[in-house]
């Protein structure tokens, strides 16, 4: 085998190994995160985090404050590769969907955890915001990650829900 063909083989193999490796790691992390999300969502199931701007009728707030939860996510190599291929033909970028779903749910949970740890009973006027974080490389044209921010008005009720 000539040194040249070894070079070619390495340049072909390296991306392939990277793809397989990041797929395996990414899948494992994603599965674990979804399990964790479901458990915590089950735990906070009874905690109202709602999008009403005003207090629902019958609720009486004694105090309030802003609560927020924020998550920064980035893509793994495998997802990026698939999305790049997808971008050639267009269509639903399925490889991004679980990632963004995880990020939204995680941000929401962190906001709720912020509220419960400070003794609030509910969060109203919940909003989600997304912003792109520019990468330092390539004159800021690339994307380093996405931040998902969940925030709302936490309220302490005069008569807490049972």
């Amino acid at each position: 085998m000539s040194p040249e063909s070894i070079e070619v083989l390495i340049s072909l193999l390296f991306p392939l190994v990277l793809l397989i490796g990041t797929y395996l790691i990414g899948t494992l992390l994603e599965r674990r995160h979804f399990t964790d999300l479901r458990a915590r969502e089950e735990h906070f199931r009874g905690f109202p985090a709602i999008t009403f701007e005003n207090l629902p009728a019958g609720w009486e707030a004694t105090s309030s404050d802003v609560v927020q939860g924020s998550v920064v996510v980035s893509l793994d190599y495998f997802k990026r590769f698939i999305a790049a291929l997808r971008a050639l033909v267009g269509g639903r970028v399925k490889s991004y969907e679980p990632l963004l779903d995880r990020a939204r749910r995680e941000a929401n949970l962190r906001m709720i955890e912020d509220a419960t740890s400070r003794g609030f009973h509910a969060v109203i006027n919940v909003r989600l915001e997304t912003s792109r974080m520019a990468s330092a490389r390539g004159d800021g044209k690339g994307t380093a990650g996405i931040e998902i921010l969940a925030y709302g008005t936490a309220i302490r009720l005069a008569s807490p829900p049972s």
């Binding site: 797929y23 899948t27 979804f34 479901r38 969502e41 089950e42 199931r45 009874g46 905690f47 109202p48 709602i50 629902p56 495998f78 997802k79 698939i82 639903r92 399925k94 490889s95 969907e97 679980p98 963004l100 779903d101 939204r104 749910r105 829900p161």
Partner: peptide
């Protein structure tokens, strides 16, 4: 207020990557 869990599979496609 009726507590519910978020539903899986609405925003995430179920197709294997």
């Amino acid at each position: 207020f009726t507590p519910r869990l978020p539903r899986d599979g609405i925003n995430v496609s179920q197709e294997h990557p």
